[in-house]
C-alpha cells in the first residue's frame, strides 16, 4: 500500500498519515507543493513598477520556502518517532490541487490531507473540493481540529 500525504501546516494530518502507514506497513510519501500562482493572482494590478512587483513575488516565494522547510522537518520528525520510512517530495505549480492530483495518480492507494488545507493561495481557493472531484485514489480528509465531544 502507498500513502500520499499532502503537506500544509496541519500536525493532525501528518499524525494520521504516519499512524496509517505504521499500522498498515504502507509506504509514505509527503508532498509539498510550492505555490507559484501569485504572479497570476496579482495579475489585475498594472500600476506597480516591476521592482515592487518582483519584491513582492520574492517575498511570497521566501514565505513558501519557509513553510516548506518547517513542514518537511515536522513530518520527518513524526515519521522517525513512529519508525515509519517517509519519502519527502517538493514540486512547484500554479495550482496546488492540480499538482496533488497529478502526484496522486502515480500509483498511490490513499491520499491524506487536511481540511481546510492551508497552503499559499489555498485560502482563496478550495483544494479539497477540487481534489474530491478528480482524485485518482481514495482520499482521507483530516479536520484541522479534533471533533467536538457530543
Amino acid at each position: 500500500m502507498k500513502i500520499l500525504l499532502a503537506l500544509d501546516d496541519s500536525a493532525r494530518a501528518m499524525d494520521e498519515a504516519v499512524r496509517l502507514a505504521s499500522e498498515r506497513g504502507a509506504g509514505l510519501t509527503a508532498l509539498f507543493v510550492l505555490d507559484t500562482g501569485w504572479s497570476v493572482y496579482i495579475g489585475s494590478d498594472f500600476l506597480l513598477g516591476s521592482t515592487a512587483r518582483s519584491k513582492f513575488l520574492e517575498y511570497t516565494r521566501d514565505a513558501e520556502f519557509a513553510q516548506e522547510h518547517a513542514a518537511l522537518e515536522l513530518v520527518r520528525q513524526r515519521a522517525q518517532a513512529a519508525g515509519v520510512a517517509c519519502e519527502v517530495k517538493t514540486v512547484t505549480g500554479g495550482h496546488i490541487a492540480d499538482e496533488i492530483i497529478k502526484e496522486a495518480a502515480q500509483g498511490y492507494d490513499l491520499l491524506v490531507m487536511s481540511r481546510p488545507f492551508r497552503r499559499g493561495l489555498e485560502v482563496v481557493r478550495d483544494a479539497p473540493a477540487a481534489i474530491l472531484k478528480a482524485a485518482p485514489c481514495d482520499v482521507l480528509f483530516v479536520r484541522d481540529q479534533p471533533a467536538p465531544q457530543a
Binding site: 501569485w38 515592487a52 513582492f56 511570497t60 492551508r118 493561495l121
Partner: peptide, 18 residues
C-alpha cells in the same frame, strides 16, 4: 491604490501572504 498598495506594503511589514 488597492491591490498595488497591498503588494507594495506587504513585504515591508512582513504580512502573512495568506
Amino acid at each position: 491604490c488597492g491591490v498595488s498598495a497591498a503588494v507594495a506594503t506587504s513585504p515591508g511589514v512582513n504580512a502573512k501572504p495568506s
